[in-house]
Design a protein around this nucleic acid. Structure first.
Lengths: 223, 223
DNA sequence: ACCTGAACACCGTTCAAGT
DNA sequence: ACCTGAACACCGTTCAAGT
């Protein structure tokens, strides 16, 4: 007899892992890693903090699920049957752009070795590498090297972005650091100082891609 | 008149940033990142937790100083005047081995973009790259790509090592993950599954170095 | 079975009080 | 100036009590 009122009562909609992960992603996007607490999550879901543990093991599992969901969107995009080199670049840039847009993904990927999200990226490189004619025994080294570049450099830019006001873009980040580098001791850091002068004309995304291309060239040249 | 007793009283030795950082490194080595708390640090230094703040701004600064000290030991080793390729490999492997021995360094390097430690590594690559005849405009891309590989892949192995009992070595880590990968869905992860079968015969350090060599080949081939 | 929210066992950091 | 250590403002996680 009370069925008629249920439809309007959105707040008591059943909790689920999916709803929790979605809310967690929203909080991470809005306020960064620091903002994601079980109390904040419970408030947003209009429930008690303990309720979350009925659907998610702990905070680590929650972060893993959030990263996995976001990464899956890039790697499940059809690779197409075009140039395999372009397919590799597309996967790499896809992950780079995700990390750029959501720095918390970069942080988490570094902490989650060989977990679901990293495997998806690895898998995304595998097909194109085979299509490129890389011998099977060399495919694993090639794929892990590409993964390493993606996680390492994209993660660095993500961490840099975290230090600056959320509004500022990639190149502003680089410029800020370039200024800092110019003031280093010339005897200790001759190379870094020299490079600092070139920074302003550099584009972070292009630089990331240059690394991918160096690897692709190395992969194509190595027998 | 109380001067005679001072020599034996080691516990009241003056606090200093150096002493604090050394103690922090010891705690990190013995118990990992979780073990480093200001309370544990204060206990080891036989002082109050608040005293630490007279010498170190906060926990972040403490971790930065600890990583910087450890990384400086590798990059300040004389690069020698031998093969520049070998010099690049030596820097990369040096950092890899540090991260392997102290997983907390890997975690921290991912969180500290373009800070002292990362700059030291970058600088370590700079000299050899110039010696290799890499044109100046390409040196920065090359150095950052090498840095990305070091931070990305070495960090992954470090994080993996953290998940296993502290005794187990690199290859045991890989074998454990290989077993897990073999049980993945074949339609979703054909590449990763295929690679899992090759894992047992792989050496993590060699695989890391293979990536460096791919980059070096790419760098040498790119005009 | 699922949810609630107070309670527990921690943190990093601050600060009045001491020397 | 430096140190002490209790106090503060948080955490993640647990668990008796409710539905």
């Amino acid at each position: 007899m009370t069925t008629r009122t249920q439809r309007a009562d959105r707040r008591t909609e059943a909790l689920s892992k999916q709803r929790i992960v979605t809310a967690a992603i929203d909080i991470l996007d809005e306020g960064g890693e620091k903002a994601l607490t079980f109390r904040a999550l419970a408030t947003r879901l209009a429930t008690g903090s303990g309720a979350i543990y009925h659907h998610v093991a702990d905070k680590d599992a929650l972060l893993k699920a959030a990263v996995d969901e976001v990464i899956a969107r890039v790697t499940t995009g059809t690779p197409g049957d075009g140039d395999p080199r372009e397919a590799v670049r597309a996967v790499a840039l896809g992950v780079f752009d995700i990390i750029d847009a959501r720095p918390w993904v970069g942080t988490q990927l570094s902490r989650e070795p060989w977990q679901d999200a990293a495997l998806r990226i690895l898998e995304g490189f595998g097909g194109p590498l085979a299509a490129l004619g890389v011998p099977e025994h060399a495919q694993f080294d090639a794929a892990t090297a590409l993964l390493g570049h993606v996680l390492g450099l994209a993660g660095q830019y993500a961490a840099a972005a975290r230090l600056l006001p959320p509004g500022s873009d990639r190149n502003a980040v680089l410029s800020t650091f370039a200024g800092r580098w110019s003031r280093l001791a010339p005897e200790e850091y001759p190379f870094v100082r020299r490079m600092a002068d070139r920074m302003p004309e550099h584009d972070a995304r292009a630089q990331f891609l240059a690394g991918i291309d160096l690897l692709l060239t190395g992969i194509a040249t190595t027998p």
